[in-house]
């Protein structure tokens, strides 16, 4: 168990180190998010949307920026191993489940870093007031986790296909859309301050994240070693 954890965290640490050397994923994710945020803030701004529509419409824009930013860079975690031909070495060095968990931790950290910068900026620039702040943080944490689980396994699949860039969005989005619907409703709920919507969202996102974790942990060895 400890050995497995050590392997997994070694994979995540290696990814973080190479990421900070090249900054490919962080640049593509972060700059994409900031550019879209600038565009949204310029065109919509804090005053264009009527007060009663704000909680919902601003939630939609926020999650669209987060999801599309994630789709712009999270496939790097596996694609870079195939492109630099380091994947065979990684297969020898660590067990498949440790690789999966390490990559998941890496993607999770990237998403949380993105959220930590993007979400406060978004709330300030768009004038998005949240009534239930801690519940909002909970939704962001759970949503970020489910997003990381799904994109990690899809990135592993498309790293082994021929056309990678477009395929990542094509394969991820249908799996992510239900999650996106839940998260938008939940964020609109915390912005308005309606606890019932929050609890149903948390349950839906938790079960989705949980099931996806189990299924991808079980299926990853097939994707990784075939």
């Amino acid at each position: 168990m400890w050995r497995w954890l050590a392997e997994a965290f070694a994979v995540a640490a290696k990814d973080l180190r190479t990421e900070f050397r090249t900054r490919v994923a962080i640049n593509s994710l972060g700059l994409f998010a900031l550019t879209v945020l600038a565009a949204v803030s310029y065109t919509v701004g804090p005053y264009r949307i009527a007060a009663e529509d704000r909680p919902f419409l601003l939630a939609v824009l926020l999650w669209i920026v987060i999801f599309f930013a994630a789709l712009a860079g999270l496939d790097r975690s596996f694609v870079k191993e195939e492109e630099s031909h380091t994947a065979p070495l990684l297969r020898l060095a660590a067990s498949p489940s440790a690789v999966w968990f390490g990559k998941l931790v890496f993607n999770l950290l990237v998403i949380y870093m993105l959220m930590a910068i993007l979400v406060p900026l978004y709330c300030i620039l768009m004038g998005y007031t949240i009534m239930m702040v801690w519940e909002f943080v909970l939704i962001l944490v759970l949503g970020g986790y489910a997003l990381a689980v799904i994109t990690t396994i899809v990135a592993a699949i498309i790293a082994r296909a021929l056309t990678r860039g477009a395929l990542f969005s094509v394969l991820s989005l249908p799996l992510l859309l239900p999650l996106m619907i839940f998260l938008i409703q939940g964020t609109a709920g915390v912005a308005e301050g309606t606890p019932e919507i929050v609890s149903s969202t948390v349950r839906a996102v938790l079960s989705m994240g949980g099931i996806m974790t189990i299924v991808s942990a079980a299926l990853f060895p097939v994707v990784w070693s075939d």
Binding site: I153, I157, R160, T163, V215, S216, V223, D226
Partner: peptide, 25 residues
């Protein structure tokens, strides 16, 4: 996805993984 993978065996196993993921949703 099936159209994007040449090798039949790899196509079969990756498509199978995606079909299971899809069915879970």
């Amino acid at each position: 996805l099936r159209g994007a993978i040449d090798d039949p065996e790899r196509r079969a196993s990756l498509a199978a993984v995606y079909a299971i993921l899809a069915f879970v949703t």
